[in-house]
Nucleic acid binder design. Structure first.
Lengths: 212, 212
DNA sequence: GAAGATACGGAGGTAGCCTCCGTTTAACAA
DNA sequence: TTGTTAAACGGAGGCTACCTCCGTATCTTC
């Protein structure tokens, strides 16, 4: 009866408890020591053996994913709330700004995501998909309203955003990023101006160091 | 007499040779295996003992610095050449575009720089200083000409640029970054302060992901 | 050619990764 | 309760990489 019609046992209480402990420890350790912190330190802090940690989270990325999934979810939800805002460009700007604050408080997340990107992990795929979808509607709305150029994808935007945030441990990064995001959003607006000067849109290939 | 007035001996020939070998090996190994590749692999490839490697380059960052300093120099020089260009905004755009190509060929560099940023290393300091100076004059010129907003520092720009390039191992990163840079440069132009105009004409590039 | 400075190399101590398996413990049935 | 059994636990141990240290080899200089 109940939900165990498929003859699965109830999960063991100690397993559930330990999983939770590991997660909490990981959060603390990663936030303090960066995403390369020792997994054995995590296990020790959680009060479990290293084997237990690996059973629950076979790879480092699995652990990241479990730790940061919730955060990504939050960011996405905020984007979805903004869908009802009046000015779509302003909504986008607000999302980006709140993203900066978010990053500022969850220091570990960007580093973890950056690492995830490089290893093409699950976390990266999930995060990008989730966030892209959430932002996509903001972008679409703005583009449909003619308030913003339409050739920029949510993925582009995310890359730029997280890229900028990646420098987040230098002094003054926050105001720098905010400044850059303003520039960026300004650039996103549809330009009614084809050429205030020389429009360098043709493939201005620099005479730099190209092979051949 | 000659240049050794300060009673320094001539450097030993084997030392010079080994240093060069290590550098070359490091270049190859880092480009192939990323900046976290094993230093012992580097030593082996160079045909020297691990001790020799560490004597010449006490830290991993020292090795990065030696490997990538030349590349940074090249990028800086190109920026300096562009100082004589007519349109300063266009010059900036060209520099950024050539930067993308540069990154595309020197895959290891961005990762190394990214790592350097996080550890606040020498390489980072040097690169930022050198590049900032080179770009700074471009920015100043553009700002002085009234063609571009003046509240964006070279450091800001570099952060944004390298941040965007950091995603450089995803499919299609290059066109994505180019797109983003265009947006960015557009945003940098001094705004005649357009409120969101409702016109989308040039934004009609939906299937235009192809290189020209 | 000898002396002395300089550089070489790799053994070895440390640390973190991850696997494997004997032991323990919780869930379920009787 | 108690017995059975599947599931989870923990940590020893093998591996790899980091980095230091110092006896030995090699180069420069005189």
């Amino acid at each position: 009866m109940d939900e165990h019609t498929d003859q699965t046992r109830k999960p063991r209480a100690d397993a559930v408890r330990n999983r939770e402990r590991v997660l909490e420890a990981a959060k603390a350790v990663f936030n303090a020591g960066g995403p390369e912190a020792s997994l054995e330190a995590v296990a020790k802090r959680a009060g479990v053996g290293i084997g237990t940690l690996y059973r629950h989270f076979p790879t480092r990325e699995d652990l990241f994913e479990a730790v940061y999934r919730r955060e990504v979810e939050q960011l996405s939800e905020f984007a979805e709330q903004l869908k009802s805002a009046k000015d779509p460009v302003d909504a986008l700007r607000r999302w980006l700004r709140s993203g900066v604050e978010f990053v500022a408080t969850k220091k570990g997340m960007v580093a973890a995501l950056a690492l995830a990107v490089q290893s093409g992990s699950e976390l990266h795929a999930f995060s990008f998909e989730r966030l892209s979808k959430a932002i996509g509607s903001l972008l679409d709305r703005a583009a449909a309203a003619g308030a913003m150029r339409a050739d920029v994808s949510p993925e582009d935007l995310l890359r730029a955003f997280f890229g900028m945030c990646y420098m987040h441990d230098q002094p003054g990064w926050q105001s720098s990023v905010l400044r850059m995001l303003d520039v960026f959003v300004d650039g996103l607006r549809v330009q009614p101006v084809p050429k205030p000067k020389a429009r360098a849109s043709k493939a201005a290939k620099p005479a730099a160091k190209r092979k051949r």
